[in-house]
Write a protein that binds this DNA or RNA. Structure first.
Lengths: 225, 225
DNA sequence: ATAATAGTGTCTATGAGACAGTATAGC
DNA sequence: GCTATACTGTCTCATAGACACTATTAT
C-alpha cells in the first residue's frame, strides 16, 4: 500500500484528498525504529515513505488507521494517537492532499511487515533526534518533518505518561524497560531512581529470566495505570 | 461566516469537505471565555457553534485560520495552535466534513467580534471544566467535544509553557497574571510561590497602577521566554 | 574467585507548598 | 488609625539525582 492511490481522482472529486500516514514506532536493541516503505513509482521514486492510505469517504480516520495497520504489520489492537494534520499546499507535487498523521506504538515481535503494492521494500529504520535531519533527505513528501515531530512528542510524553509500556512485550525485565526509556529520552538513567519511579506502574509476574551469567532478572508486567 | 458553506458541493467535489474550526479563548474578570456564534439556519438552528470556515483548495490550513480570525475578531497576529482533527462520519448531518480545530488565544480588549452571514449573534461564552458538560447541549455538531478537549489542553499547558501570556495585554500586574493562571487551572495559588515561579519570564516596565485604595502594583511585561 | 548484571539503602540538592510577615496606597 | 492589596522571607516536605552498597547467577 502507498499513497500512489492519490494519483487517481476518484476520491471526493478532483480537487482534494485526505490521507492518513502512520508512524509505527518500536524499540529494538539500542534504538528506536520507525517503519518505512521504499517507493517504486514517481514521485519520490526510490525514496522512503511512511505507510499511509487514502481515507475513504465511508470510513472514519480511526478506521483508516486500523486498515493501514492491518495491511502493514498485521496487528491492529495497539496504541495509536493522532499526531498532527499537515496541510501545506504543495506537500504532494501532484495534487492537494491533506494528511492526518498518527503515531502507533508496538512491540516488534508482534509485527510481520509485508510490502504492499508499488512498494519494493519495507524496513525498520533506526531514528533518533540525532540522525533525523540526515534521514530527511531520504524521505518522500514532508515525511521527514513528521518523523521529527513524532520523536519530539514521544520524548515529551515518555516521562509523564505510560506510553513506553506499549512498546514492551507482555512480560519484561525492569532493565529492558529502563533501556527503552533511555533510548527514547536519549540519556542514561540511574537504576535505583528509575525503579522507584516506575514501581507504581508495574507488578511482578513471578517469572524469572535464567541462564545468563549473572543474577536472574524478575519479570514484570504493566499494571495498566 | 459559518459552516453553512458546507451545504454547497462546489468544494473539492461532492463527497467531502475540510473545515477549520477555531476556539478563540480569552480571560475576563473571573472566567475563561470562548467565542461562539448563534446559528440562524439548519442544521442546529438556534444552537451555538464555533467560528469556522471551509478550507479553500488554494489555501493552507493556517491561511484558513487567519482568514477566520480576521473575519471574526479583526485581529490575526495572535497565538494559534492546532488542536485536533475530527473525522467521525456523521459529525455533520448533511455530508462528510472533516474538521481541523485550532486554539487561538487573545487579549479580549483587542477583539471586536462581528456577526457574519447566517449568524444572529456572536457572544463570549464563559467556560470551565465544571460547566462544559452542561454547555454541550447548546452547542452544534461536536463542538462541545472540541471545547472540552481544548480546555484540557490549556489546563495541561499552562503550567509548563508560556501560553497564559498570550491572553494578557502588553502590560499587566502580577496579580492579574496570577488570576489568569488560577482561572485556567481551576484552583488558587500562593502569591509568593507564583511570583518565584514566573519571575524568570517577566520584567518590570517601570509603570505602576495607582489610584486604588492600597499599595500600587508594579506593571510587568512578558520577556518572551 | 571473577565477571557481569540484578537489585536496594541513603544522603543531598532542588523545588513546590504553606504561611507569616512587611510595605504602601486611600480613606 | 483602619482596610485592602502588593510584595517578600523562610520553614517544611516531597521528590529527583547521585552514588555506594549488597545479591545471585555462570564460568
Amino acid at each position: 500500500m502507498s499513497t500512489d492511490e492519490l494519483l487517481k481522482p476518484k476520491y471526493y472529486g478532483e480537487k482534494l484528498s485526505v490521507a492518513v500516514d502512520v508512524l509505527i514506532f518500536t524499540v529494538a536493541d539500542n534504538h528506536v525504529e520507525v517503519l518505512l516503505e521504499k517507493r517504486d513509482d514517481e514521485p519520490f521514486r526510490g525514496y522512503y515513505a511512511l505507510p499511509g492510505a487514502i481515507m475513504d469517504v465511508d470510513e472514519s480516520l480511526e478506521e483508516t488507521v486500523t486498515r493501514c495497520l492491518r495491511e502493514e504489520i498485521g496487528v491492529t489492537d495497539i496504541y495509536t494517537e493522532q499526531l498532527y494534520t499537515w496541510g501545506e499546499l504543495r506537500r504532494d507535487p501532484r495534487r492537494r492532499v491533506l494528511s492526518v498523521s498518527y503515531i502507533a506504538l508496538v512491540n516488534k515481535t508482534r509485527c510481520h511487515p509485508v510490502p504492499g503494492e508499488r512498494v519494493s521494500e519495507v524496513r525498520w529504520q533506526e531514528v533518533s533526534t540525532a540522525n533525523v535531519n540526515e534521514l530527511r533527505g531520504k524521505l518522500a513528501y514532508d515525511h521527514g518533518d513528521m518523523v521529527a515531530y513524532a520523536l519530539e512528542r514521544l520524548k515529551g510524553k515518555v516521562e509523564y505518561t505510560s506510553i513506553a509500556f506499549h512498546m514492551m512485550g507482555e512480560e519484561f525485565t525492569l532493565s529492558a524497560l529502563q533501556h527503552v526509556y533511555e533510548i527514547l529520552l536519549g540519556k542514561n538513567l540511574y537504576k535505583a531512581n528509575f525503579r522507584k519511579k516506575i514501581a507504581e506502574f508495574v507488578e511482578e509476574t513471578g517469572g524469572m529470566v535464567v541462564g545468563d551469567p549473572h543474577r536472574p532478572s524478575k519479570l514484570y508486567r504493566w499494571n495498566g495505570k
